[in-house]
Amino acid sequence: MTKATNITWHDATITKQDRRSQNGHGSCVLWFTGLSGSGKSTIANAVSNELFQQGINEYVLDGDNVRHGLNKDLGFSEYDRTENIRRIGEVAKLFVDSGKIVTTAFISPFKSDRDGVRELFEDGEFIEIFIDCPIEECERRDPKQLYAKARSGQIKDFTGIDSPYEAPDRPELTIRSDQLSVEESVEAIFNFLKEKNII
C-alpha cells in the first residue's frame, strides 16, 4: 500500500507492445536465483552478453551492484532482504515495460518474495531460473570467501549456513551449474527463450 497521496497514474503514449514491435523481440525478466557461489552472476552476464551480441535490448541487475546504490540503505535482516527483492522487482518491471530482457542475479532466498515479484508481471514475463548447485560445491568455489567468513562467525544470517534458502517449487528452468558449463547453461536458456518466442 502506497503512503503517498494525491498521485495519479499516467498512461504512457508509447506502450510496451510498441517497444517490442520496434525491437523485434519480446521483453521479460530472467530471474536467476540460487545460493551464493552457484554461478548466478556468471551465467546471467554470459546470457546478457550473448543477447547484446545478437542485437537484443538487454540489461543486467546484479545483487552486489544494486546494493552499492539503490539499496545501499538495506542490510541483511529478513525485512531488508524482502525489501531488497521488492525494489528489484519493481525496477525489473520498468525494464520489461521498456521492451528489454533484464537478467537479475539475486540469491532471493524466500519463495514468498519471489512469488511477490512474479505477481508484478503478466503471464510469461517472469522467468524464474533456478541455478541449482550443491552447497558443498558453492563452498568449494567460494569466490568471495563468504562461506568461510560465515563458518567462522564473521558473517551472520548467511544464506545456506544460518539462514534458509527456499528452492523454487516450479521454476521455468533449472540449471545444474555443477554439471553444465557456462556455455551449455547459456544455450539452454536461449533454447527456452526461442521456444517461448521471446527472441
Rank of each mutant, 00 (worst) to 15 (best):
D80V: 06
E50I: 01
R114F: 11
I43V: 15
P109K: 13
Y165L: 11
T103Q: 10
G63W: 07
I161L: 09
V186I: 05
F76W: 14
D169E: 15
T82C: 03
F158T: 04
H68F: 07
E184W: 01
S177T: 14
V186F: 09
I127G: 08
A46V: 10
V182Y: 06
E172S: 01
T103E: 14
S112R: 14
S41K: 01
R170V: 10
E183M: 00
K93D: 01
E58H: 14
N57V: 07
R170D: 15
K144V: 09
L173P: 00
R151E: 09
I135R: 12
K144T: 11
G160W: 14
V91A: 05
K100N: 07
E78F: 06
G69A: 15
F158D: 11
S163V: 06
G63N: 05
S181N: 04
L61A: 05
I155V: 13
N57W: 04
G69S: 13
G160L: 04
K72V: 12
S163L: 01
R170L: 09
T174S: 10
E184T: 00
I43L: 05
V186E: 08
C133D: 07
S181A: 00
P164Y: 10
G99E: 12
A46K: 13
V91L: 06
T82R: 15
D132E: 15
R118A: 15
G160D: 14
T82D: 14
A167N: 10
E90Y: 11
L94C: 03
E137S: 02
D169P: 03
I175Y: 04
A46D: 15
L173I: 11
V117S: 02
V117Q: 08
D62N: 02
I155Q: 12
Q179G: 00
A44P: 02
V186L: 06
A44L: 09
C133S: 13
A92W: 12
D97M: 03
F95A: 00
I175F: 06
I107H: 09
D80F: 03
V182P: 10
P143K: 08
R140W: 01
G89Y: 04
N49H: 14
T174L: 00
I56F: 08
A167G: 09
K149T: 10
E137Q: 08
G69L: 12
R87H: 05
G99I: 04
K100I: 01
V117W: 13
R176H: 14
G116A: 05
I175V: 14
H68C: 02
E183P: 00
E128A: 00
F110C: 06
E83H: 03
H68A: 03
V117M: 06
I131R: 02
S77G: 06
C138G: 07
R87E: 04
E58A: 01
R114M: 09
F110A: 04
R67G: 02
E139W: 05
K149W: 11
H68I: 01
D157Q: 02
V60M: 10
D142A: 02
N71T: 10
F126Y: 15
A105N: 10
